[in-house]
């Protein structure tokens, strides 16, 4: 991505975000969201985030890797467990990174 494209993309991304936040404040009383859309919105975060997490963890080096040699998969599973038990974001990140570093050291034979 060239520098110009990068900056234009950032500006456009900012404008889109701002337009969404401003939309119904300005349109108050004139527009209501259809109920299906309102209910569907809550699935946006889990869907988009999982669509990024899965390939990042299962296919970090290209081909699908679901073996025990996949350190990111193991670290990700531990992180998911910590997230589920504690609901603490920082603890989740710390646990995942600790497992990743531990396994990397182990596999490097340190």
């Amino acid at each position: 991505m060239t520098s110009a494209t990068l900056w234009l993309t950032l500006l456009a991304g900012g404008l889109i975000t701002y337009a969404i936040r401003l939309s119904l404040i300005l349109a108050w009383g004139r527009v209501t969201l259809p109920p299906t859309l309102q209910r569907g919105l809550r699935f946006v975060p889990p869907a988009v985030l999982s669509a990024i997490i899965f390939p990042e963890i299962l296919r970090h080096d290209g081909p699908l890797d679901v073996s025990f040699g996949n350190t990111r998969l193991l670290a990700g599973l531990v992180a998911a467990l910590v997230a589920w038990r504690t609901k603490n974001a920082l603890l989740t990140i710390a646990a995942g990174m600790a497992v990743l570093w531990g396994l990397q050291m182990l596999f490097r034979g340190v």
Binding site: P46, L100, W101
Partner: peptide
């Protein structure tokens, strides 16, 4: 070598799990 990029999927995991 610290694989700091891995904090990204981890951050997302931390955001997704409570939403399930």
């Amino acid at each position: 070598s610290w694989s700091l990029d891995f904090t990204l999927p981890l951050t997302f995991i931390a955001l997704v799990i409570p939403a399930l």
